[in-house]
Amino acid sequence: MSMMQRHNKASAGVRVRVELFGMARLVCGCPALELQLHDDTTLADVARALAIACPALRGVALTTEGTGLLESYTVNLNGHTFVTETGVHLQPGDTLLLFSSQAGG
């Protein structure tokens, strides 16, 4: 089943918390956002939703068009797995973490 087909099947979607770190937090002025996302979500879906919720993230963590993540940021699901281009299945209560892709020191 393709991701698009899964999107079409998922009508209501899920509400998730997105925690922000680094410059993303500073430009948003808050540590976290609440987003409504499809339960099968790709990195691009997350980026588009973030661009709407907080336009200041464009050019900081998101592309200026707001359609994708900048290379310098990454999205992690619940502190365990990284959201990739091919998508991830979200459950109610999930948390996404938006932080720098440059790990460590």
């Binding site: 770190f21 680094g22 410059m23 937090r25 900048l70 290379e71 310098s72 973490l97 932080f99 720098s100 440059q102 460590g104 020191g105």
Partner: peptide
């Protein structure tokens, strides 16, 4: 590739 180091620096690690 160096955005973190130019903005908050390695201190960005702490909260993450």
């Amino acid at each position: 590739a160096t955005e973190k180091y130019r903005t908050l620096g390695t201190l960005a690690n702490t909260a993450v």
